[in-house]
Amino acid sequence: MSAGLFGIHGRALEIRSQRIGVLTSNIANAATPGYKARDIDFAAALSARLSGQDSDAAMNGATRFRVPIMASLDGNTVDMATEQGAFAENAVAYSATLGFVASRVESLTRALRGE
């Protein structure tokens, strides 16, 4: 996504999208013995991305293992409530970011049409 066109929002949308995937992986592995839940630290990923790192490096650098609220016997650290909360929060933030990108596109098209 062009950084010049969408500014911070394009990068934010990339990270939000990747975070959906990471959280979905956690939900998918809720019953896998020994699975360690991961999450992307959004603020860290965004600031790494804005400081010029490419998107893979920024997101890998900001991916953290989740600290479980309570350890389970089979070594799985997925806490369903936490994951669902994070997923919902991320979905809302994705929508908001998408709104910013859309309005940017809209104002650009308006400028192009000369209205």
Partner: peptide
Amino acid sequence: LDASRQYRNMVEALSTAKQLMLETMRMK
């Protein structure tokens, strides 16, 4: 019970993700 709950969670997560993807695609 646990299996069906986790199945339902997965369906919900997928449908949310799908909706967001569709919104992104429909953006003009």
